[in-house]
Design a protein around this nucleic acid. Structure first.
Lengths: 231, 231
DNA sequence: TAAAACTGTCACATCGCTGTAACAAAGCTA
DNA sequence: TAGCTTTGTTACAGCGATGTGACAGTTTTA
């Protein structure tokens, strides 16, 4: 069983990371690891995890500060964060939740507790995001089975086009520049020509066919937009 | 891919400048360099960079002092600054952020981290989407989806006419000369005939149609004005 | 391991936008 | 009203932005 969700584990003790990793794997999650904030930040930009498990006490930047920074940036503010705090640091919990974290767990904790907290936060945080199927004018994108259909007929679509369409359908009626699309759909640290976006837009339109390609609209001089209203 | 943004690198070690320069180039940024505050200040006045990467420890004027000076001057206070601090100087971070810097990065840092931080700060500094939609007498301009509608009906409009209309709607009831409009809508350093404004005014009026063209009023001998009051 | 699918880039085609000139119309002044 | 200035309007050539097909390199699948 795989949930398809990716969790980032940030802790400087490899033993703890290992323990968490096993628990996550058992529960069907993918995971990536980081031992400090710097690596963590890179991974976040690159991989866009669905959740972050963040140790409160880290060498260098503190968890508090790191949380604040992530919550300040549009690209990362949506990602839920669970703080891992040691026993004596009860006071910090409030600080942590104030800074934007979604939950906290006190060490030591059982793998079972971790997973159930994590599920709860994911359930709360992504009711609309990756879980629910989206349907617009007969165009249906179902994230659970990772499939797109247009009026019941299956749409053959590549991975990038899928992510692009998913982003558009979850962010309708809004113009995005090519750079924004690259950041959001490709991931922050990929150096790719801007015009590449055009090509994938083209492929997406082609895949959608004449019945739906009007939903992907060009905003000349700016970028692209997903909209049900005719321009 | 080019972002069009220019970054000023201020560091006395040419090796570090070089490293940063390569990273910026990869990410599609233009850059200029300076090895001390004096040169840096000249470059800033000359080039008006979109961001400054400033080494905390500089010969002569300290980064702190330089930051303060830039943030005091109206001409430069808007330019975001990222401080580059060495590892042992953790205490200075607070000082640095207090002085008006927008973020800091601890050396040593990876090019990747630098670029993603930089993007984050630029995104924050140039808010593209937080502008509210404006509605006047059924004429609606929505910056987030980059669209103009007149009584629900979509208005087909070119990029320049869009910017012109946006400027007018955010600066109503006031006459602007052609030169002022060129500065505000076209951008400061473009050499364009003044009469070009007339043509775009004409195009804008035409696009708005008889229902709204009265909002764009000619002020003879001066220029144009956006007003709901009949002249 | 071969075939198929996917990705990013380029070159070329195409389309729409832009600025300018030229002329028409409207205001102003003497 | 004539002669001037200012603005409206149109047409058009040039150019930049976008659409599109092809291709090579890579990854995934069978």
């Amino acid at each position: 069983m795989t949930t398809g969700k990716t969790i980032l584990i940030v802790d400087d003790e490899s033993a703890i990371r290992e323990m968490i990793a096993v628990a996550l794997e058992m529960a069907g999650y993918n995971y990536i690891e980081a031992s400090n904030c710097k690596d963590a930040h890179e991974s976040i930009i690159d991989t866009k995890p669905d959740m972050i498990l963040l140790d409160w006490m880290l060498p260098g930047t503190s968890g508090l500060e790191f949380t604040r920074r992530l919550k300040r940036d549009d690209l990362t503010k949506e990602i839920p964060i669970i703080l891992l705090t040691a026993k004596g640091e009860e006071d910090n919990k409030i600080q942590g939740l104030d800074s934007g974290a979604d939950d906290y767990i006190t060490k030591p904790f059982s793998p079972r507790e971790l997973v159930s907290r994590l599920k709860a936060v994911l359930r709360r945080a992504t009711p609309l995001g990756i879980e629910e199927a989206i349907e617009i004018e007969g165009l249906l994108l179902d994230p659970t089975c990772h499939r797109v259909t247009a009026n019941q007929a299956s749409v053959d679509i590549g991975p990038t086009e899928y992510r692009l369409l998913q982003f558009f359908m979850t962010h309708q009626e809004r113009a995005y520049s090519r750079t924004q699309l690259l950041d959001q759909v490709w991931g922050g640290n990929v150096y790719v020509e801007e015009r590449t976006v055009d090509v994938h837009i083209r492929r997406l339109r082609k895949a959608l066919g004449s019945a739906h390609e009007h939903l992907i609209q060009t905003v000349r001089g700016t970028g692209y937009r997903f909209s049900t209203r005719t321009s």
